[in-house]
Amino acid sequence: MRRHLRALLFLVYVAAYGSFIAVTVAAPHVLAAPAPGGVNVAVAWGMGLILLAFVTALAALAMPESDR
């Protein structure tokens, strides 16, 4: 169970990071669009990835110690 949760956390982050790279490479105009808070998508996504890393770390910590 715990392994699955960790794998899920990992996949969520990989999706967020991977799609950022994909958009930067293939559709950079998306990054110029306005985002909530008055900044652009590039800044919001970048800051979001840093925040998501910390949230992921806290979530990993909150998981049960071990089920093996």
Binding site: R6, L9, F10, G46, I50, T56, A57, A60
Partner: peptide
């Protein structure tokens, strides 16, 4: 800032 994003993302691999 792209470097900042990439350098930090690497820690997810380390952690998980």
């Amino acid at each position: 800032f792209l470097y900042s994003i990439g350098y930090l993302a690497g820690w997810i691999v380390a952690l998980l």
